[in-house]
Design a protein around this nucleic acid. Sequence first.
DNA 1: TCAAATTTCATAGTGATTACAGATTCTTGC
DNA 2: GCAAGAATCTGTAATCACTATGAAATTTGA
Lengths: 213, 213
Amino acid sequence: MTPPTGRRERKKTQTRRALSDAALRLFLERGYDRVSVKEIADAADVSVTTLFTYFPEGKHTLVFDEDASREESLLAAVRQAEESVPGVLDALQAHLRERFRFLEESRDLKPFLELVESTPELAAHAGRMWLRHETALAEAIALRTGRGPDDIAVVALARYVLDLPQLARRSPDPLAALDHVIGLLKRGWGPDRPAPRDPGPPPSAADGQVRPP
Amino acid sequence: MTPPTGRRERKKTQTRRALSDAALRLFLERGYDRVSVKEIADAADVSVTTLFTYFPEGKHTLVFDEDASREESLLAAVRQAEESVPGVLDALQAHLRERFRFLEESRDLKPFLELVESTPELAAHAGRMWLRHETALAEAIALRTGRGPDDIAVVALARYVLDLPQLARRSPDPLAALDHVIGLLKRGWGPDRPAPRDPGPPPSAADGQVRPP
DNA sequence: TCAAATTTCATAGTGATTACAGATTCTTGC
DNA sequence: GCAAGAATCTGTAATCACTATGAAATTTGA
């Protein structure tokens, strides 16, 4: 394998950055709909054709150029969690809280977030990008709690947790809202109700993995 | 106020129907992407300009022309429910089950659903249309359970329930999946503590836990 | 340096959507 | 019934995202 250090590679990432930088700058200046792809291509000094070879999925993908690390940190949080549904939820809660604080406090990101929120097409795409982690998150949760990755409870939990930030952001106190709903999910998905003495008849094999607190 | 019984009104609804009928027929025949708006306009014997005065939100709205009754029946289910979160969830469960059966069993709708599912743009729009009922559902739930309509728990519950059908449809046994997740939500959002003796929540099918593979 | 592979480009589409301005059709007061 | 006047319809032409194509320019490897 050749190390990807050729001039070609360098120019490529350079051009890609020039494009998304120019796009973001123009979008923030004038709004998404009032900037044409031709203007972006001109600003980056490439042809429209070239722009679309770099971003074949369309104009809106120019805005979301870095994404790989988010999923990884999300999954890392789950992997380090205690091996139970409440444990996983605790870990996700902490992770989302931190992420939330970061987004809220970073002044640089404020206009960017406004741009995305105020442009339906971008908001929809951001949602899709975020929900795309659903499967990976479900797998991580399944692995950590000893359930199957197709278990509807696991899939639903993954989706609900991913839905949460967007939901909480509307609340006057997003962090409190986050905590509150995670608490509800923990109750619903958590260990069986306080079993006085006997765990009772284990109705399925996937039951024993849940560790009561 | 004049009763809307003029010839003008009649022609208008007529034209609107001609357009969406023609569109649906052509889409089912050839697929969404392989039908141009010009063809639809021609088939309905109007100009493209006219088509867009009837459907200004774009080509995809031609597919979803009747929608008002769905929200109403959803809200009606909530209004007739018992005045508690589990009561409301029971009612929603029953309503969704019925709706599910209807969609599955109706042969007429099968190709339509396939069309929507297989066209990303249409699937996304269908999702948006469905989630649009979120606020109304949250209000109804709030009213029925005596909470505030901005209560994050209520809003989250509304969204989660609306998310459910799409989620359950992926499962091999959608109805069981529906029941299962509703059961989990009931546990989470239900009464504060399990009553030591009283069964409390009414019997539901969502009792068995994890499906063995 | 040469040739193959890759990247970029200008040109010319297609298809959705909108602006416009002149017809056409309906309603309404008489 | 009839003449405004409003509402609706139409073709034309434009913009904009996106694609196909084939040729030119650049990079790479030998």
